[in-house]
Design a protein around this nucleic acid. Sequence first.
DNA 1: AAGCACAGCAACCGCCGAGTA
DNA 2: ATACTCGGCGGTTGCTGTGCT
Length: 310
Amino acid sequence: MGRAPCCDKANVKKGPWSPEEDSKLKEYIEKYGTGGNWIALPQKAGLKRCGKSCRLRWLNYLRPNIKHGEFSDEEDRIICTLFASIGSRWSIIAAQLPGRTDNDIKNYWNTKLKKKLMGMMLPPSQRKPPAFPQSSHQTPPFQSQQLSSSPYKECSSFSGLEPTNNISVPLSFSDSTPPFFQTQESWVSSMKYYPVKENLLMFGCEGSCSSSDGSCTQISYGRDVIKQEEMGFQSYISNGLEENHKFMLNYGCNGGEKVNQQSAYFGEIPFEYAMEDVKQVISSSNNNISSSLFNHIDDSKTQEKVMYLY
DNA sequence: AAGCACAGCAACCGCCGAGTA
DNA sequence: ATACTCGGCGGTTGCTGTGCT
């Protein structure tokens, strides 16, 4: 027996919300709250919408104190730091950015930050000028001569990321590690990676692979499916020698085996962490970032959520 | 001016875990 | 113990606006 649908799909409206629907929902929730029952809410509020849709609309758009618009450098930094530490746990990341929703952050990551990051991982010779506004910048003191001469650094808007000690990595950078990664922005080098195949390193967490035996030839990247043979066979310059390594950035986790993958992968950050644990782990390993990161972080977002859940 | 490609974002889908009858 | 409901979450899709050719 399949799972019962959360609503009668034939009789619910889908698609963009009209201003009338918005005001109905907003008025109702402001007057009566959600009553702890989103499924029943649309009917009570006179909306032909699925309860889930109402919840999403409220949380992502209608509730007070939602921040829209440009993400600041500080927010970029927080997102990247947390992503490097805990992966695509958008709700947790959102909890650290008051006024931002997980959906917002997810979209922002998928459309902008990810590309920025990918761009930074390309060797200087292959980088394209960034598509983002230039901001104040700072060259990491450990940057190599070659990279320092790269014009790209001038454009990094991740400049707020201070050089830091690495958060624990499953493998330490070693002789087999592309020096490229050792000389990039510190938060990039602090990202977890592990070898997938010979000369292929994967950052973030494991890719979503359709086959369980690892023989898949495609890895899902949101709407971009990348065939392994098409994956960037990037070259990088090191000590005057050009070498080839494949690398890939993974920003998603395979939902099916989340727990195992996460706990195995983020060895020092158990999947079932508490927020305090995350704070502690990041604080202890990433002093420069974390000190400012968590200073303004409190449970406000959590409280906010609770507040509006009534 | 028209057609196309791409980016951005709102919204949907389906799975999972917690709570409860 | 089991079945079921519901809220929450992350991944994905589809629409719309914008820029380019």
